[in-house]
């Protein structure tokens, strides 16, 4: 007992030592910056500089502006539509990989094929839609030559359509990976039991597989929703600067050196994101899923 006690103290010290680099990085580059943003959101600004103060002006302006609500609504719209599409698409892809591909080698190979784009540049992947969607792009030329349309469609590029297309293109991976991961852990005998008891394929899907895949779905949803809500570059690039979301509101303020106003918007965005995550986390215990 005594020996154990003597051993347990250094154990905690070792754990703290091992965790210290991680703690330092997160304290210095995550916690402090957030604290700084909260502080600066109460500061004042002139056209050229910002000065320490304790003002509610930034929030007052932000929350009394109609633009703010329109932009937040637009952001929510992007998040919701992207979430719905990536969920259906990601679930289908993961379901195919986990239950229809039978050899592990093929599963790993096809899974890798899905994940490789994640390790390449998002900006390049956005740019690569231009020759597809442009006025004289591949989509329009193909549709015209097939006789489906007479004139090029204008809404393919630099529109809400292209923004959501790019989001789906960039972020479906974040759905596929966690959903596939939980599906692979489902005991196959449960599915056989469902069949043996006379369940149809669809009943097995809705009554067995989907409930058991819920943790993966929730984790994937957290990824997709937070990525879309915090984005500013995809919306700016794919909408040709014609649509706005909260991220763009912040980056526009930054470009004008209006840091306090940007910080106030950032705080509101952060609170919104945390509320959404809080709601999603009610459905799953992340620590248990790792």
């Amino acid at each position: 007992m005594q020996a154990q006690l003597r051993k347990s103290l250094p154990q905690a010290a070792i754990a703290w030592f091992l965790a210290s680099p991680l703690t330092l990085v997160l304290a210095g580059f995550l916690v402090l910056p957030i604290v700084m943003i909260v502080i600066v959101s109460f500061w004042g600004a002139t056209e050229f500089s910002i000065y320490p103060a304790f003002l509610f002006d930034n929030y007052e302006f932000l929350l009394s502006s109609r633009v703010t609500y329109a932009v937040f609504l637009n952001t929510a719209k992007y998040a919701l539509v992207t979430w719905a599409i990536t969920l259906v698409l990601g679930f289908t892809v993961a379901y195919f990989l986990a239950f229809h591909v039978r050899s592990l080698t093929w599963q790993v190979a096809l899974f890798l094929l899905c994940t490789i784009p994640f390790w390449t540049s998002n900006i390049i992947r956005m740019i690569s839609w231009i020759p597809f969607l442009g006025r004289n792009g591949i989509a329009n030329s193909a549709l015209i030559s097939m006789g489906v349309i007479d004139e090029p469609l204008e809404w393919l590029l630099f529109s809400d359509f292209s923004v959501i297309l790019a989001f789906v293109h960039l972020y479906t991976l974040f759905m596929v990976v966690p959903i596939f991961n939980t599906m692979m852990r489902i005991d196959k005998s449960l599915i056989e039991a469902a069949y043996d008891n006379g369940a149809t394929g669809f009943q097995t899907l809705t009554n067995v597989i989907i409930p058991l895949t819920k943790p993966g779905i929730v984790i994937g949803s957290i990824f997709v929703v937070t990525l879309v809500m915090g984005d500013f570059i995809t919306v700016r690039f794919m909408s040709g600067s014609q649509s706005a979301n909260v991220g763009r509101l912040i980056s526009n303020d930054i470009a004008l050196l209006q840091y306090p106003s940007a910080a106030a918007t950032a705080v509101v965005l952060l609170i919104t994101v945390l509320i959404v995550i809080g709601i999603l986390l009610r459905f799953v215990d992340i620590r248990k899923e790792l």
């Binding site: 580059f29 995550l30 402090l32 910056p33 957030i34 604290v35 700084m36 943003i37 600066v40 937070t226 809500m229 915090g230 984005d231 500013f232 991220g247 912040i250 980056s251 930054i254 840091y259 940007a262 910080a263 950032a266 965005l269 952060l270 994101v273």
Partner: peptide
């Protein structure tokens, strides 16, 4: 956390 927050905070 939205990346732009990290960017803005560290920059500030």
């Amino acid at each position: 956390i939205p990346s732009i927050l990290v960017s803005l905070g560290v920059g500030l």
